[in-house]
Design a protein around this nucleic acid. Sequence first.
DNA 1: AAGAGTACCAACCGCTGCAAG
DNA 2: GCTTGCAGCGGTTGGTACTCT
Length: 260
Amino acid sequence: MHVTSLTPHMCNSEGSSRGLTKGAWTSEEDSRLRQCIDTYGEGKWNLVPLRAGLNRCRKSCRLRWVNYLNPNIKREEFGSDEVDLLLRLHKLLGNRWSLIAGRLPGRTANDVKNYWNTNLAKKQEPCYASKMRKREITCSPTAPAEKLNVIRPQPRSFSSNNGCSSLNVLSEVGFGEVSTKYGSIITCNKGKEKCDNFVNNLMDGEIMWTKSLLEENQEADAVGTVGTTSDEGDSSSTDSMSSTFENLGSLFNADTREVD
DNA sequence: AAGAGTACCAACCGCTGCAAG
DNA sequence: GCTTGCAGCGGTTGGTACTCT
């Protein structure tokens, strides 16, 4: 990008940060930003530095609001229910912190990411946690999941959502559930392309039962496994189907329910 | 009490996706 | 279809608080 002039909304990646304040925010800056958001609302972050009279880039302003000043942010420690949900969502979504945070009312992506890296990563993947902490590669960490092209982050919702569930996440992006004799399963209800993209971007070992596969097989119980790197799935095997649903069941646990 | 090591978390950086022109 | 600018994401860094010796 060719930059000919400097404006407060420009950050390093967009141009230059020369002359812009960096580092910790002062209470004065906080109050200015808060007042600006109160007056103009969220959004138009490129205008915020000018409106608030801050010598900060728009990214810094947005981050400060989103991660710290927003009054909806929870300050207390993660509860056991939140941790449980976080674990299951991470298993499902990988490091899509904003998506995960969207299902944890009052938590920001940064909160979730920090909590994961400091409290949970070590329990899940000791090698990865060690690497994160020490910046040392002493063993091969689990490869991060491929980015999901289909799923776009949902706007934060701070409603007291009792339906915080993995299935709700899926339904928001076009996936739903159907039930079979094996239990509830995830389906795609917004077109085969989305479904295929989702499936193609699943993490290793994750298994997806798609409505399209159901339709292709022309029978309610004809389902297929979709492996990403290992073709361990056997769509014709009842044992495989059962184990698959066991996997899904453990993945969703309480979220999985029968649909009449 | 003091220094070293560790944990936490706010903030920064680089990148990507999307929309508008 | 291409370019440009904005919004927002995940990874990473660095300062500080805390704990241990």
